[in-house]
Simulated assay, not measured.
Amino acid sequence: MRRWLFNIHLVIKLPSGVYLENLIDDLRAFSWEAYETLIYYSKIVKDSNNKSNILKNDNLDDPVTKADLKVNEVIIKRINEKYKDINWEILSEENVKLTSESCNNNADWIWVLDPLDGTKDFIQGTGNYAMHLALNYKNKPYIGIVLIPDKDELWITDGEKVWGEKKDGSKIKPNLSTNKSLKDMSLVTSKNHRNEIIKKLIQKIDFYKVITMGSIGCKIASIIRGESDIYISLSLMGKSSPKDWDFAAPEAILKTAGGVITNLDNQELIYGKSNFEQGGIIVASSNINTHKDICTEIKEIIKKYDIYPLRIN
């Protein structure tokens, strides 16, 4: 696995004029600037009796805050300022919401930005929110950033290795668990997006432990730290699904660390679709070597108890 990652790192060449070490240094600086913005607004939320002060829309199912928009502005501005003549696109959740125009999905290099993943948790003051920033190459996550301000934590992958950093520069090593059976795993699942079907699946699997938190970035970071082992995303038919910006950066850091994110058929996620959706059942686990068997076991449980309509291959 490590050899494969190393070879990919050698094969992929960044756009002309972009140097990996400098790019990572810039992304680190951009991220800690976003950290200051998110911490500033999170204090306003915690200190205010009227949280509507930071809301920019009235959609409680899909809220947008001043923090979302400010971080969106900062990150895009910094990328464009530092790399004026580089031929890459920027796909941002907030830009998609604000305008019908989007980036060129066929571009080789696309930044995928979620300035505030876990907005509901941010408003609720739980601390389970993150910023996601990935650089996709040919619609595959390559470089990834997951910033978790409440933990003073920044996860980075340069495509070859992954590490965490504190604001003081101290490092955090990944600590993924390995070789656990499904029932011995600790599941991390959504707090604000759970539904009866995923609840039933969790009950039937009977995990060793179930942890609830917001933000996919926070969930994947918990797997990388070794606090949990598996995350399952299950989208209901006809309902909203996670999007590219929810998964790109978390996938980049988890895959480089030795874990994996796929659909239930153990197929890689497809980025760059016209609707940006990552629907159906998605499984993230800590061990690429056991992931296929884990997916198969989950599928068998779903079939046995008729929990969710599965595609027939």
Rank of each mutant, 00 (worst) to 15 (best):
R2S: 10
R2N: 13
F6A: 14
H9S: 15
I12H: 05
G17W: 11
G17L: 08
E21Y: 09
L27T: 13
W32Q: 09
A34D: 04
Y35P: 02
N50R: 06
K51G: 00
S52Y: 07
K66D: 08
A67N: 05
I75Y: 09
I79Q: 03
N80H: 14
N80Q: 15
K82V: 07
K84L: 14
I86K: 12
W88H: 10
I90F: 08
S92C: 05
E93Q: 10
E94K: 02
N95C: 07
L98Q: 14
N105W: 01
W111G: 10
L113I: 15
T119C: 06
D121M: 08
G125C: 06
L133A: 14
L133R: 03
A134G: 09
K138P: 00
K138C: 07
K138A: 02
K138I: 11
P141W: 03
L147Q: 08
D150K: 13
T157F: 07
T157S: 10
G159H: 11
K161Q: 10
W163R: 15
G164A: 10
K167N: 09
I172T: 09
T178D: 00
N179G: 10
D184G: 12
S190F: 13
H193G: 00
N195T: 00
I205T: 13
F207L: 09
Y208C: 07
Y208V: 06
V210K: 12
V210L: 06
I220R: 07
I223G: 04
Y231W: 12
L236I: 13
P242G: 05
F247M: 14
P250R: 02
E251G: 00
I253D: 03
I253Q: 03
K255D: 04
G258Y: 03
G259F: 00
T262G: 06
N263M: 00
N266F: 14
E268A: 14
N275G: 01
I282D: 03
V283I: 15
T290Q: 10
K292I: 07
K292M: 11
D293A: 14
I294C: 01
E297F: 01
E297Q: 14
I298Y: 04
K299M: 13
E300K: 15
I302F: 05
Y305K: 03
D306A: 12
